[in-house]
Design a protein around this nucleic acid. Sequence first.
DNA 1: AGCACGATGCTCT
DNA 2: GAGCATCGTGCTT
Length: 202
Amino acid sequence: MTLPRNFYDRPTLQVARDLIGARLVRILDGVKLVGLITETEAYIGEKDLGCHARVGKTNRNAMMFGPPGHAYVYFTYGNHWMLNAVTEREGFPAAVLIRAIQPIEGAEIMSKRRSGRDSFGPGKLTQAMGITKSGNGVDLTDSGSGLWIEAGVHVPNSRVTKSPRVGLYSVPEPWKSKPWRFVVKGWKISNEESATSLRSSQ
DNA sequence: AGCACGATGCTCT
DNA sequence: GAGCATCGTGCTT
């Protein structure tokens, strides 16, 4: 089952935390690619000086102002696409950046798309899954969209680390140091956890 | 294994 | 024309 609209229509920090362990699913050329989300970051409103919405609504960031549960995909550093899930009520610009996944289905194809290099990182996972401009605005609650998010593995708080967001070099404090990044300890969701989740969901 | 830097092109001023 | 929510290479340790 895809995560419903009201999952995203909540405080962004909570959504970012709860997306850890969720299944990111992509249908690419008719093939299913799946990864468990292992790293996220929250970007929260116009006052958050680390957030694209700090300058108000522009063509680029407009999707963040829209309804929750849609993808906000943008291009940066000349090469890279970044995948976000829009959160909170329509009109309030916020989103969760998906920074890393653990491939669990179609891993060979993703590796191939990366010329054998790893898919670990926000720009790498979008390349591995073939997510670009055309993914901007896609409804992540709709499994017919070719890109969506499903409930996945439950990862307990004891396995999740909070830390400052990455790459905000010129962002002033306190925003630069807000612990709005969530990472699975050891960067890996164990087989035991996955197995537990599978059993409990049957 | 870790650091430094150049690539690269879109977005906004 | 500057600034990026980064990546890969090539260098040093």
